[in-house]
């Protein structure tokens, strides 16, 4: 029994290890709401130094500084939007994992929809072509059907085997 659950257990434990390696924060929050906003913003903001991590996961010095700054801004009563604006003003749009929709990011945001549309159109065309091709397939006349039936019958196939 233990052998059967072992792989599942190992998978579970390895996933836990990933969670545990995230940066540990020592900030204390009196209000739960602030803590939740802190968590959300720290995962939304990208670390400028280690570019594939958010500032919550990164232990780069700049990420620590930005977490401290985020903590301060939250306690100074900044709204989420004001905090993001604050960070963008200093570190550029790069710091947002979710870029805003504007003319510069129009291609970025519309690309998935465009790909689906183009893919759907190609699929539709190829499906329609196959279905029209089907009507071109010649049907067998009586004689040919009989010949086919004879060829696939056990007499012929079985005969070749022995």
């Amino acid at each position: 029994m233990i052998w059967r659950v072992a792989p599942t257990l190992m998978l579970f434990l390895s996933l836990c290890a990933g969670l545990a390696s995230a940066a540990i924060d020592t900030y204390e929050f009196e209000e739960e709401a602030l803590r939740i906003r802190y968590r959300a913003l720290a995962t939304e903001l990208r670390c400028p130094k280690c570019q594939n991590q958010n500032i919550a996961d990164s232990n780069a010095p700049v990420a620590m500084d930005l977490r401290a700054q985020l903590y301060r801004l939250l306690h100074e009563g900044y709204s989420d939007e004001e905090i993001v604006t604050f960070m963008v003003a200093r570190y550029g749009e790069f710091i947002r994992y979710r870029p805003p929709v504007n003319y510069q990011t129009a291609v970025l945001w519309s690309a998935p929809a465009l790909f689906i549309l183009i893919g759907g159109w190609l699929l539709f065309r190829s499906v329609r072509r196959t279905s029209t091709n089907k009507s071109d397939v010649a049907t067998l006349n009586g004689e040919e059907s009989a010949a086919l039936a004879f060829l696939v019958s056990d007499d012929v196939i079985g005969g070749e085997d022995t």
């Binding site: 400028p48 130094k49 780069a60 010095p61 700049v62 500084d65 200093r90 570190y91 550029g92």
Partner: peptide
């Protein structure tokens, strides 16, 4: 001041 200047290293 580093943060205000967008310094990351």
């Amino acid at each position: 001041l580093g943060i205000d200047l967008g310094v990351y290293g």
